[in-house]
Simulated scan of single mutants.
Amino acid sequence: MQVKLFYKTQRELAVSLNEIVDAYWNDEINEDSLIKCVHDVYINNPNKMLKEGKFTTVLKQQCGKRRLEVIERIIRGGAEIRS
């Protein structure tokens, strides 16, 4: 799965995160790819994802609770990339 590392808007970022998580849920990518993609996107766009330690309103509206739970576990270190 090809993912951009830098996003212009929070809405574009949300669409990409949705695609990543949905691809994992549909067994199109494996767990390691999910973690790596979400981690890479977060490292390069932290201000578009979090404000004052919480997901931005745009991400909450566009991604939904279930996807954000997965994303939060990854960016908070709850899931590790296995080598």
Rank of each mutant, 00 (worst) to 15 (best):
T9R: 05
I71F: 03
L13Y: 07
S33Q: 15
K54G: 01
L34V: 05
K65T: 14
K51T: 11
R66G: 10
A79R: 15
C63R: 07
K4F: 05
W25T: 10
N30T: 02
N45P: 08
V38W: 01
K36I: 13
V38G: 06
E12G: 12
T56K: 01
I81P: 02
G77I: 12
R82I: 14
R73K: 15
G64S: 11
G64E: 08
V15L: 10
K54Q: 11
H39L: 08
S16G: 12
R76E: 13
N44K: 11
L50N: 03
F6W: 05
Y42M: 05
M1Y: 13
R66M: 09
K4I: 01
N18F: 00
K54P: 00
Q61N: 15
S16H: 09
N45W: 02
K8N: 09
Q2A: 09
R67D: 02
T57H: 12
Q61C: 10
D40H: 06
N26F: 11
V58F: 08
C37G: 09
I43L: 08
K4D: 02
K48M: 03
E69K: 15
K8Q: 09
N26W: 06
W25K: 15
Y7K: 02
E72C: 04
D22F: 05
S33M: 11
K36N: 09
N44P: 00
V3I: 11
V21E: 01
T9H: 04
I20H: 06
K48P: 02
S33R: 14
R67H: 12
N30S: 10
G53Y: 01
G53Q: 01
F6G: 00
V3T: 13
M49K: 00
E12F: 07
L50E: 03
D27Q: 12
E52N: 15
E52I: 08
A79L: 14
V3Q: 06
L5N: 10
L50D: 00
K60F: 03
R66F: 09
D22R: 12
A79Q: 12
S33D: 14
W25L: 14
I20A: 04
I71N: 04
G78E: 05
N30Y: 09
K51R: 14
K4H: 04
Q10W: 00
E28K: 15
I74W: 03
N30F: 10
E28M: 09
Q62R: 14
L34E: 02
Y24S: 05
G78R: 04
V3K: 05
G77C: 10
Y7I: 00
C63H: 08
S16C: 14
R73E: 11
T56V: 04
V41R: 00
K65V: 08
V38F: 03
Y42R: 06
I29V: 14
P46E: 05
I35S: 05
E28D: 13
K4S: 09
I74L: 01
L59F: 06
T9K: 04
V70M: 09
I43M: 09
E69C: 07
I29P: 08
I20S: 04
E52C: 06
E28H: 13
S16R: 12
K36A: 13
D32E: 15
I43N: 02
K36T: 13
A14Q: 00
N47F: 08
V3P: 03
V70D: 01
V58Q: 11
R82L: 11
R66Q: 14
N26V: 05
R66W: 09
V58E: 12
E80N: 13
